[in-house]
Amino acid sequence: MLGLSILANMILGFMYVGQKTMMTQAEDQNNETKKEIVQLKSKVNEKDQDLNTFQRNATYYEIEHSEEVKSFVDETFRGLFNYDNKNYAARFDQVKDRLAESVISKLKASGEMGSMEIEFKNEVKSLHVYLSAVEKDQAKALVMMETQYSVGGSAFPRKNQMYEVTITLDEEKRQVDKLELMGSFEPFEEN
């Protein structure tokens, strides 16, 4: 009877040890799986970020290489800076949808716009637009423009100016909402 009891206890002991070993292995496996899940999640986040960065870069790239946005800035500037006696005041009407009210208000002179008797003309001789994206719906453009001004039939030497503009990029409407003259300069290569 005693022998039988010892045998049964030994069998139970072996079974316990076996189960314990199996549990430990299962726990280890579980922990390993958890680690793998965490690593996978981290990789997913990483890939997500990569995807976002890629998408943002793609959008930025699209903005910065957008011929449409460049054309928009080019046409707006030509509309504003190609003028003579005839369209001096009326040119603002032609570009009013392209400019924020604050920008138009700044460009128009103080006081009432009148017609000038003296003959004058401003011509855009060359214009280059360099775009950089600020947000998905906002871009900045650096505009390098060469103009020639003439008054009373006498033309002055050509002048170079640099402007910085901010453009809001709505799907339906693009608009220049900030315009700043960065300066007038003389290109220099050799003395």
Binding site: Y88, K108, A109, S110, M116, F120, Y149, V151, S184
Partner: peptide
């Protein structure tokens, strides 16, 4: 006298603002 206002202009080669 009689020259037009030119925003950003500060010399006779580009015209004058105020």
């Amino acid at each position: 006298v009689g020259w037009p206002y030119v925003w950003g202009g500060s010399d006779p080669h580009r015209g004058f603002d105020c």
